[in-house]
């Protein structure tokens, strides 16, 4: 699948912001003065809304995007939109009450944490529900998105806490979450990465009983939209190297920085981690194979 920048930024940036809201809802964020509350929630909401705006760039008709909130009964894309709007609303309410009362509401906070993760789950299911792409159609796919989102939110909170208190906090928890997210992703790479669609050029054409099926002539001399969108092959050559870089940036360097206790290194963690996640997301699309390519001479 072609890795469109709008979609990579959408899933990784909104994932980060929703992860921040998850920890914010659980009250993990230290606030030394009321304005900090607005700064932290502002940063998280900017990431969420920025990610959503990026997703609009992927649309042929962004001016009709409001219509995408209507089909939540069947469409994960629609559900993602609805949950995102609800989560942003709950986050605003939670921050407002905290700001005016000087005390956070634990119940609304729980609600915020729950909704932010449901939104991430829905984002993942946009891809995880597509049977045509075996790599995505795996029960672990939403867990990868959720664990990486929680992980991204936590490293952002850690950097924030470093800024507030000047000393490293939550070191054990963050280590555990980073390792857990890494393990989930590695299992996904091993399991989902190897899963086949079960479809072949023989089953695609129904001619398998007659023999082996190979494309003799393409329907057209130039690449068409389907091949441009779903026949992306550039990445496969470098996939292994890129996944190693993603692991180093998203997990290894953050762990080293965390345990070094060096202030500037801890402040840099969310940025380094985020670049790693962007590469991970790029690979998520670039490595995915769509069964339609079987009609164009591919054999998965």
């Amino acid at each position: 699948m072609r890795p469109a920048w709008s979609i990579i930024v959408f899933t990784s940036l909104s994932g980060l912001g929703l992860g921040m809201l998850f920890w914010f809802g659980l009250g993990f964020v230290t606030l030394t003065q009321p304005i900090d509350l607005l700064i932290f929630s502002g940063l998280a909401l900017t990431a969420v809304i920025g990610g959503l705006c990026s997703s609009l760039l992927h649309l042929g008709h962004p001016e009709r995007a409001f219509r995408a909130l209507s089909q939540w009964r069947s469409s994960w894309l629609s559900r993602e939109g609805v949950f995102a709007v609800v989560t942003v609303g709950v986050a605003c309410l939670y921050a407002m009450i905290w700001f005016t009362d000087g005390q956070r509401s634990a119940s609304i906070g729980m609600l915020l944490s729950a909704f932010s993760m449901i939104t991430v789950w829905a984002t993942a299911m946009i891809y995880g529900s597509l049977k045509t792409i075996a790599r995505w159609y795996h029960p672990l796919t939403p867990w990868v998105y959720v664990s990486l989102s929680i992980c991204g939110g936590l490293v952002a909170v850690v950097a924030w806490e470093q800024m507030m208190s000047g000393s490293p906090v939550l070191v054990e928890l963050t280590t555990g979450v980073l390792v857990l997210a890494f393990v989930v992703k590695v299992i996904w790479w091993r399991r989902a990465g190897q899963s086949g669609s079960g479809s072949t050029p023989e089953s695609a054409t129904g001619l398998g009983a007659m023999g082996q099926v190979d494309l003799l002539m393409s329907p057209h001399t130039e690449e068409n939209w389907l091949q441009h969108e779903m026949g992306f092959v550039v990445a496969r050559k470098h996939a292994q190297r890129l996944s190693q870089i993603a692991v180093v940036l998203a997990f290894l360097l953050p762990l080293l920085a965390l345990w070094s206790g060096v202030s500037w290194a801890i402040l840099a963690i969310p940025f380094v981690h985020f670049v790693g996640i962007m590469i991970e997301r790029w690979l998520f699309f670039a490595e995915a194979k769509h069964v339609v390519t079987l009609f164009y001479g591919d054999r998965h």
């Binding site: 042929g60 008709h61 995007a65 045509t132 969108e229 779903m230 339609v292």
Partner: peptide
Amino acid sequence: HCIGCGLCAWSCPYGAREM
């Protein structure tokens, strides 16, 4: 009403839809 998101084409195994 189509927003041109392309998800329907992603979900089709046959390549029957084109933007």
